[in-house]
């Protein structure tokens, strides 16, 4: 019996974001990443974080799940952050100097900046894969890449290969599990021993799996032939992605977000100054009272 494992990360709930066209989501992600990298102020970064939070809430995703997606790359992120922190050369006096390590005030700011940028980047990509099935992503990619057909790039073939691969992942996963179980039942041990022993232990899984994959490929080829597949130009396409009001909303949302980021880039410093002034004024007021 198959265990009904969902591969990839797709989180199956019905939401505004889930129903949005995959092309919109792909473009949205690209725009979002651009915004992240263009962003030069803390205000802008906060706005980006707020934007992502809104999308996550709209998508009805548990926040925990999105944060968990960072787990895989957390070491890389922290490592990059530490390097930056230690080697960023700021102006003026270093806060801490020890051998070759100098930590500057700007360094700390810059590191916080970089880290939040990378975290938001990873999380936003996770939101895409959590809300979009792999097959919808493939459709979206195929549609977005269509213009490349004119330079003879095999867009359709690529999309078909991807879709078949996606289709067979669960089947082959099941098969792998069945073979592993069958060999375990014959006393195979995959967990102990040195590297060589372990590699050798994989052979009884790998060979039956390969043979089965080839057999499946051959049968699939026959089945595709029998269903008149020839990859010829008369081929039509049933699935057409359609933009809806959701996509219009998404574009507006993105436009506001980007405008916000750029406005903060230009006027962020002024805004900060204004805040400081306001704060001081407030303190002054209290002092007077």
């Amino acid at each position: 019996m198959r265990k009904d494992v969902a591969f990839g990360q797709y989180y199956p709930v019905d939401s505004f974001v889930h129903r949005t066209d995959p092309r919109t989501k792909l473009l949205f992600l690209i725009a979002y990443i651009v915004a992240l990298f263009c962003c030069k102020t803390g205000w802008g970064m906060a706005l980006c974080a707020l934007g992502l939070l809104t999308v996550i809430l709209l998508a009805k995703l548990p926040l925990k799940l999105v944060v968990r997606s960072v787990r895989g790359v957390v070491f890389l992120l922290v490592f990059t952050g530490i390097l930056n922190l230690f080697f960023y050369r700021g102006e003026g006096e270093a806060l801490i100097s020890w051998k070759f390590i100098h930590i500057y005030k700007e360094g700390i700011f810059y590191t916080i900046y970089l880290m939040s940028r990378l975290f938001l980047l990873v999380m936003s990509s996770a939101v895409l894969t959590l809300t979009t099935t792999p097959i919808a992503l493939t459709d979206g990619l195929e549609s977005l890449l269509t213009p490349l057909k004119y330079i003879r790039f095999p867009v359709h073939e690529l999309a078909l290969i991807m879709s078949i691969a996606l289709r067979f992942i669960p089947t082959l996963m099941d098969e792998t599990e069945r073979i592993i179980n069958a060999q375990k039942a014959r006393g195979a041990d995959f967990e102990s021993g040195n590297v060589f022993k372990r590699i050798k232990a994989i052979i009884p899984i790998l060979i039956p799996l390969l043979i089965s994959a080839f057999r499946r490929a051959e049968e699939l080829g026959d089945a595709m032939d029998a269903r008149c597949y020839s990859g010829s130009s008369i081929r039509t396409k049933y699935k057409k992605l359609r933009f809806t009001y959701r996509d219009v909303c998404a574009f507006f949302f993105m436009a506001i977000l980007m405008t916000g980021v750029f406005l903060f880039n230009s006027y962020g410093a002024a805004l900060s100054a204004l805040c400081v002034q306001g704060w001081n004024a407030l303190l002054g007021l209290f002092g007077a009272v």
């Binding site: 069945r178 073979i179 069958a182 375990k184 009884p204 039956p208 089965s212």
Partner: peptide
């Protein structure tokens, strides 16, 4: 336990892997 409880899965022929019948049978 597994040596005492043998398990033949559905379509067991798909678990064969060795070069010869002897090698395959002797595996367990």
């Amino acid at each position: 336990l597994r040596a005492k409880v043998g398990m033949v899965f559905q379509y067991p022929e798909y678990q064969l892997f060795a070069e010869t019948v002897f090698e395959d049978v002797v595996f367990g």
